[in-house]
Simulated assay, not measured.
Amino acid sequence: MSCDAGVSLAGWLTELAQPGQVRPVVSAPDPVLARAGAVVDPTDPAVVQLAADLVATMRVSPGCVGLAAPQVGASARVFAVDVTGHPKAVTVHGTFVLCNATVVSATRWRPGREGCMSVPDLTGDVKRASRVVVEGVLPGSGEPIQLTTDGFEARALQHEIDHCGGLLFLDRVAGAHALYQRKVYL
C-alpha cells in the first residue's frame, strides 16, 4: 500500500480493534534507549498488543506526538505517531503504528527544536529532513506501506525511527550549545 500526503491511516487503528494498556515511559539513561531494537514479526500477537499499548500511552501523555517501543522498555522496532492538532503539523496521516520502518528517501534538511518524553528536562536543535519517504509494515495485517510526508510529521517519524535504532535526539544535536532546559508551564 502506498500513502500519499493527506491520506489517513486511521482505518488501520479501527481494524486493530485491540485495547491498549498504558505503560510507564522510561527515561535516559535507561540502557534500553541505547540499544537498537529487534526486527519484529508484525503479525505476532505480542507485537499487535505492543502497538495498541504505544497508542494508549501516547494518548494519555500531553503533547506527545510519537512513542517508540524502547521508550516503554521494549527493545523492538515499533513506534506510534500522531501529529493531529499540533500547531506545526501541515501534513497529517492521523494515528498509526509502523514496524521495522526505514527512511528510504530524505531531502530538504532543516534544523528544528525537539523534545522527548524519555528526556523530560531538555530540548535540542536537531537537523533533519523536512521531506521523507518511509517504508514500514502495519502491525496486525502485516501490510507493507510506503509513506511520503513532510514538515513536522517527517521530523516525528525520523525521531521515532532513531529511537528504534537506539538513538536519542541528544545523539543528533550539534553540541551542548544546541541543548536547552525545557520550559515548565504551570
Results as ranks from 00 to 15, higher is better:
M1Y: 11
S2N: 10
C3R: 09
V7D: 15
S8G: 02
W12C: 07
L16R: 08
A17F: 08
P19E: 07
R23C: 03
R23G: 03
A28D: 13
P31H: 13
V32Q: 03
L33Q: 07
R35K: 13
G37Y: 04
A46H: 08
V47R: 05
V48G: 01
Q49T: 02
L50P: 04
L50K: 02
A51I: 06
A56M: 00
T57P: 00
M58I: 07
G66L: 12
P70Q: 06
A80M: 02
D82K: 02
K88F: 15
A89T: 04
V90E: 14
V97R: 05
L98R: 05
L98G: 06
C99L: 08
T102E: 12
V104G: 00
A106I: 01
R110K: 14
G112T: 15
E114C: 05
C116S: 10
M117V: 15
V119T: 01
L122Y: 09
T123Y: 10
T123C: 11
G124F: 11
V133T: 15
V133S: 02
V133L: 05
G136R: 06
L138Q: 04
L138F: 06
L138V: 14
L138K: 08
P139N: 08
S141F: 05
S141N: 01
G142T: 07
I145P: 06
I145S: 06
L147N: 07
F152Y: 14
E153Y: 09
A154E: 07
Q158I: 10
E160Y: 11
E160N: 13
G166D: 04
L168T: 11
F169L: 03
V173G: 01
A176D: 07
A176I: 10
R182T: 08
K183Y: 04
L186H: 14
